[in-house]
Structures are given as C-alpha cells and as structure tokens.
Nucleic acid binder design. Structure first.
Lengths: 224, 224
DNA sequence: CCGTATCCGTGGAGATACTG
DNA sequence: CAGTATCTCCACGGATACGG
C-alpha cells in the first residue's frame, strides 16, 4: 500500500494493515489459529486467491505472519500470526465492538460462518456470575452452530455442537446475536425469529463489556 | 467502498471505515473538534481535495459526521463527528497504540504535525502520581510545539507553548516521543538527539497504558 | 480564502483460468 | 490443495480549473 507519509502511529499502523482484506486476514488467523491457505480462504468468502497470497506474503515481510512447511502428516504449509500480529487483537476487538451497530439487519447475499457467531460472545461478554455453575449454550443460526461455555468465570466459545446444552438458541443471525449481546430484549428477539429451548436465565449471565469511551463521554479534543 | 459481504461486525465496520483515508479523517476530527474543510485538509498532508470532499460526504451519509453551515462571522462550514463517529475513538486508540512499534525511525519526507506529538501522551499515558503537584512539559520537535499538563490525576495535552514549563524536551520526533512513552531510556534518547531542560523526573510520572492483550497473553483461538 | 468539479495516469482489486 | 498468471476495470492520487 502507498504510505500516508505521516509520522503518526495511527497512519503508520494503517500503512501496514490498512489495505483492503488485511485486517480480515488477521481476524481469520486470530480466530482459527495456524491454518492452511485454503482454510484461510474459506474463512474469507469473496477473497481472490492471488490477493490472499499476496497479502500473506506482505504480512510475512512485515513480521506479522509466519508460515511453516508442516511435517509430513499434513503435507502442507501452516500460516500463523507472530506475536506482533497477535498484538492486533485489541484493534479487532475495538473495531468489532464498534461494528456491532451495523449488525441489526441481515443483508441479502451476506456470507455467515459459525466462527463469526462464536467470537462475539467470546470477545465482548463476561460472565456476570463468575462463581456460578458451569453452563452451556448451543447456538444455531442458518445452520451455523457454535457453543458457549460458561465456567471458572470465563466465557469460552467454539464452533460445533454441545452434548447437553442448558439453553439452545435458534433463529436468524440478528435474532441470536441480538439476544446474546442484549442488543434486543427477548421479546423483540422472538419477533425477529428467535426460538429458545431450555433455561433462558443463562443469558442474564452474559454481560457485554463496556468500552472506554462509552464510560467516559469524551469531551474536547486533545485534553482528557 | 465495496462491501465484504460478511455478516460479521468487523467486516461491517470495515465496510464503513475501511476505505483509505477514512480513519485518518476521523482521527483529525477527533483531535481537532469541529473543523473547517481546509483545516481538515491541512491536518492530512497528501490528501486530494476531491477525495476529502467525497469521504466527508460518505461519512455524513453514514451518520458519523455532521456539518453545519456556520453563522456569518465564520462564513464557512464546520465538520464534526456525531456520537457514532466519536465512538470510533477506542478503535483509533488501539490502532495508534499498536502502530507505535513503527515509530522508531523517521522516514524521509514524512510529514509531522504538533497534533500528532500531542495525542500520544494524551491517549496512551496516565499520571503515575495522580495526587502529585501540577506539572507542565513543553515539547518541541522539528518546530512542532505541544504542551503536556499533569494535574488532577489527568494527562492533558494541547498544541502550542507553555509559559513556565517544568521540563522542556527538544529533539527529533523519535527521540522526544520515545522518551515520553518510555520506549527508549533517557540515555538512549539523548543519543537520538534529545535535549532536556528542567526536571526530568516528571517523565517518570507518565505511565504507558497496558493493553488488554499484553496483560493476558492470549491463548488459543476462540476460547478465552 | 473555501470548497467543488473534471481530467488523466497508475496501481490495486476482482474474476477466471491454469499449473505444481 | 496451494498457489501463479493474466486480464479488465475502477479507485485513488495529483493537477488544475472553476464557482462562492
């Protein structure tokens, strides 16, 4: 990418990760861990192979990504983030939290993957009752299935199915996500198509994280 | 910008602010407050006027920016962020903090403005001795001058000059910024060209904020 | 001085086909 | 499966000229 030519950390950061697709590639590697080329590609519907290959090469030169020629059993390369690349996690958290405001409606033709259903509760919620009993929530939206596991004061998520969920949420993505993150109340979520089975009280344990700037309404420019 | 077409809050966020220059325009409005077109432009060396005009229009349609036809004395329009736009502040914080790793060296031809000298301490440091006496630091780098004011437990900054600074830092941008943010120690900063006058102990009061992910070394993908 | 409109050269993005 | 190669086309950057 052409540099902005500003001696400013934001501009220099954007010099490195401001290119189209770049932050989504980081998202992918962050969510999936070490991945094969094709797996990264499948996690990024719409990306062109040459573009992805090029970006991975650039990211490697910048030291954000590393790739290993994996041992025989895999017979393939694995791409993974370096520490520098993983350090982008707070950026993706902030961006993902901000972007939540645009998740209210589904758009025709939008791709939707289970990983994206999973990262929202993992990144943006905490257990309001950390000492409470373990609890498991099964999510199922457009056939994309993920699991939330509460326990030890943490909110863990993974793609797939739970054996004995305490609560199952089914419905279109905005309904499931909205209910999870408290963007809409249960009644409204049901009108959006949410179906629940089990103990809905578990949802009250998911407390959405407060962002810095929501807490302290920012005043004038530089002084704070 | 062409949409990624992902039902994912990060992708949707990037749909809105992922275009080239867009986040820097937000940076500018965030740092300066309500600004005239030309002031925004001057804060963004290298931007083309038509591009800036176009982006401001898009941002306004998205509801991140508002503009007012100012009353007679000014005879101009003022652009400012809406609450939605200001909500991007945490994103810029995270990105600016991450981008600090690329501030080690100056690059030939890079533009440098006092605002960028000022926002780093304001956004990324806290007063380690909040009950301590007020203190004032004057910064002067490449002729760009800014002031840091410590007091009431806050770190305030502004562009310009202080009447009676307790400490004055002069030198090339990486030296001044590095010393301020503790990226390099004083001795190293001096070899980079830093000159100090006054009570250097004030620097010890500036404590760089810890990011979420530095604190808790992140483990595997979605579980955390 | 403030901002808009237009033209043009270049490069990056997207789609597709093809190879190790 | 893991990319490379090729092509088209739009967006950006830069300059400039023009209306308020």
């Amino acid at each position: 990418m052409r540099s902005y030519g500003h001696y400013c950390s934001i501009a220099r950061g954007l010099d490195v990760v401001g290119d189209r697709w770049t932050l989504l590639i980081v998202r992918e590697l962050l969510l999936r861990g070490p991945s094969r080329f094709t797996d990264v590609k499948n996690g990024l519907p719409g990306v062109a192979t040459n573009l992805l290959a090029g970006r991975l090469k650039e990211l490697e030169q910048e030291g954000l990504v590393r790739h290993e020629y994996a041992p025989p059993p895999i017979a393939s390369q694995l791409y993974e983030l370096t520490d520098e690349g993983r350090a982008l996690e707070p950026v993706l958290h902030a961006l993902g939290l901000w972007g939540m405001r645009y998740m209210g409606e589904e758009r025709d033709g939008d791709a939707f993957l289970a990983e994206w259903l999973a990262y929202a509760p993992a990144w943006f919620t905490t257990d309001a009752d950390p000492a409470g009993p373990p609890a498991v929530v099964q999510l199922d939206s457009d056939g994309q299935r993920a699991v939330i596991e509460l326990g030890d004061g943490r909110v863990r998520t993974r793609v797939g199915d739970a054996a004995h969920p305490d609560l199952t949420l089914t419905g279109p993505p905005p309904a499931v996500l909205g209910a999870l993150l408290g963007k809409v109340n249960l009644k409204r979520a049901r009108t959006l198509g949410l179906k629940t089975r089990g103990n809905v009280a578990v949802l009250d344990r998911l407390r959405v994280v407060q962002t810095e700037s929501e807490a302290s309404a920012s005043g004038s420019p530089l002084s704070r």
